[in-house]
Computed example of a mutant assay.
Amino acid sequence: MLGLPDHIRAFLFDLDGVLTQTAKVHAAAWKDMFDTFLRAEAAREGEEFVPFDPVVDYDRYVDGRPRLDGTRGFLESRRIRLPEGGPQDPAGSRTVHGLSCAKNDTVLRMIKEQGVQPYSGSVEYLHRLRVLGLPRAVVSSSANCRDVLRAAGIEGLFEVVVDGVVARERHLAGKPAPDTYLAAAEELGVPPEHAAVFEDALAGVASGRAGGFGAVVGLDRTGQADELREHGADLVVTDLCELIPGDSR
């Protein structure tokens, strides 16, 4: 049914890069924040400025992960150790929380300025699922998930939302751990082996595989089909419309 095995009865979707065209906004926001920080660090230490790569560094260290984990992961890759700080740190402070806050401020500003566009193929797929009465959930590391869904006009297409706010409240480990996807499946009342995960991030695909889900679909928006398969995708497509029978796009 709809391109997946017949035993699949629930559908769990990542947000950025799967449902909405916001992954590139996040990549730009991470680059803006990290390049500002790295340029200042290079000047402070008298070293060469090496910018954040919005493709390689984004995919490897931050894509799909909770914001604080992404900040820590990239800093560790550059052997930079900063104080953890706390949520009260001003944006741009030389702490993990301060840098993370700066990134969030930037992405919110960019979304406000540019708006949010959903992928038309994903919206069509969601409507097909709703007509068939199949349960749907959004599983995102973003604390801004509901705002993005609302801005994209697709909030009403889901019964369950497990986002960064829910993960924090329930103390759920972020991707690549499977905890948030497992929580969504449980809320929908469907065991993991009968649910499908849709992800464009390597960490997200890995979380779907770690959770023992019945199908893990990788969305290749940036030419990383092989990497998605290596991280556990059973099937890789460039758009969800490819899963709709008879769609010629």
Rank of each mutant, 00 (worst) to 15 (best):
G133N: 12
H127F: 12
P87K: 02
A91R: 08
C101Y: 09
A91K: 00
V131Q: 13
S93V: 06
P87Q: 13
Q117K: 14
G133S: 05
G133H: 11
S122N: 03
K112H: 15
P118V: 15
T95S: 06
S122F: 01
G92L: 07
P118W: 00
L132Y: 07
L99W: 06
Q88I: 07
V96M: 04
Q88R: 11
V116Q: 05
G98D: 01
G121S: 08
G98C: 04
C101Q: 14
G133T: 08
M110Q: 13
A102Y: 10
D105S: 04
L126W: 03
G92K: 10
L129Q: 01
G121E: 07
A91L: 10
R130T: 13
S93R: 11
I111A: 08
S100L: 08
N104R: 10
R94F: 01
Y119W: 05
G121H: 03
D105F: 00
K112C: 09
V123I: 14
Y119D: 06
L108Y: 08
P90K: 01
Y119L: 10
L99E: 07
D89W: 05
R128W: 03
D89S: 03
P83V: 07
E84V: 04
Q114T: 14
D89F: 00
V123E: 00
R109E: 15
A91V: 02
P118G: 04
G92W: 04
A91Q: 12
V107H: 02
C101S: 14
P118N: 07
G121R: 05
V96F: 00
V116C: 02
G133A: 03
R94I: 04
R94H: 11
G92D: 03
P90M: 03
G92Q: 10
G85N: 11
I111C: 08
L129Y: 06
Q88T: 15
D89I: 02
E124D: 11
Q88G: 09
C101V: 13
P87M: 08
L129P: 01
D89E: 10
V116N: 06
Q114S: 14
Y125A: 06
V131S: 12
K103F: 05
L134K: 09
S120L: 13
Y125S: 01
A91G: 12
G86M: 09
G133P: 14
H97V: 12
L134S: 04
L132V: 04
K112L: 05
R109L: 05
Q88S: 13
L82Y: 03
G121Q: 06
L134I: 04
G98M: 11
G92N: 13
L99D: 08
R109F: 07
G86W: 14
L126G: 00
S120R: 10
L126A: 08
G121V: 10
N104L: 11
N104E: 14
R128C: 03
L108D: 11
L132Q: 14
Q117R: 15
L99S: 05
R130D: 12
L126E: 00
L82Q: 06
S100V: 09
A91N: 11
L129F: 00
E113Q: 14
D89R: 00
D89A: 01
T95C: 02
G98P: 08
Q88L: 13
T95R: 01
L132H: 06
H97A: 01
E124Q: 10
H97E: 13
K112W: 03
Y119H: 02
S93H: 15
L126V: 10
V116G: 09
E113N: 15
V123D: 00
